[in-house]
Amino acid sequence: MALLTVENLGIGYQTAKGLLKAVDGVNFSLEPGRSLGLVGESGCGKTTIGMALMGLLPPNGRITEGRIVLDGVEISTLPEDELRKVRWNEVAMIFQAAMNALNPVKRISAQIMEAIQTHRPDMDDDAALLRVEGLFNLVGLPLERLHDFPHQYSGGMKQRAIIAMALALNPKLVIADEPTTALDVIVQDQILKETKQLQSQFNIGIIFISHDISIVADVCHDIGVMYAGQLVESGPAEEVFFNSQHPYTQALVSSFPTLAGPKTKLAPIPGEPPNLTGTIPGCRFCDRCPKDTASCKLDHPKWQQVGPGHHVLCDHC
């Protein structure tokens, strides 16, 4: 049974201009111990999906259609009290370290212990601290820095602390939202490697959210490319990265430099994503698409299979 199933998920934000459909008709599933990378530019809906998986949509956001099933439980309809038990216990999240995800006035140890003791109220302080020490060893943080405040840590250390926190309760699913964006390349590389290793060690399912397709391709088993609230291409990482079919994916791939790949000119994608408040009859990418035809604007594109497990939402691929 799949760890996570997302079916026909639609998420809307109530705005002054009307309902903004941030996510529209998204389907995917994740097996235990596998990792899925969600890629796309800002505003494509990838973070919204991440938040929906934790039940943390902002007050004006709601799931308009479809469902999210985690380990057999439909979390999209759970009441808040139930959801709170699911959070961190079953789904944890790795935040971006540069973004003040750690509370500046609380010690690191206290912040991790808090996560543990919230869900294990019977665990006393000593036991919780022991657990935190174990986590520190796991992520390679020195124990003497256990009781430091966040500002005393470097960016890489903070990121490790956040990872340690995410692993604190042995969650089945971890959502990593841009976990390495603000780190320098070497630290980023280290952390990604360790993450990958921890994932296989503890058999955790990971949803990896990033705007950088090259990183995702490196880390994840599968990739889902998102554009304007829709999944437009999905499949095994190598397939999607090296054999991209959707014009948007192709543009995305070529807009990042790779050390390994051939030297190509970086191609920025001209144009902007469409406005998501109204209804869009045809393909959402057609305004920026080099393969655009008249029919693209009129009809919804259909999913096509282009390889083993490799699908693309385009009538011309």
Partner: peptide, 9 residues
Amino acid sequence: MRKRGKLVA
């Protein structure tokens, strides 16, 4: 940008 979680209070 990350959005603030829903305040159910």
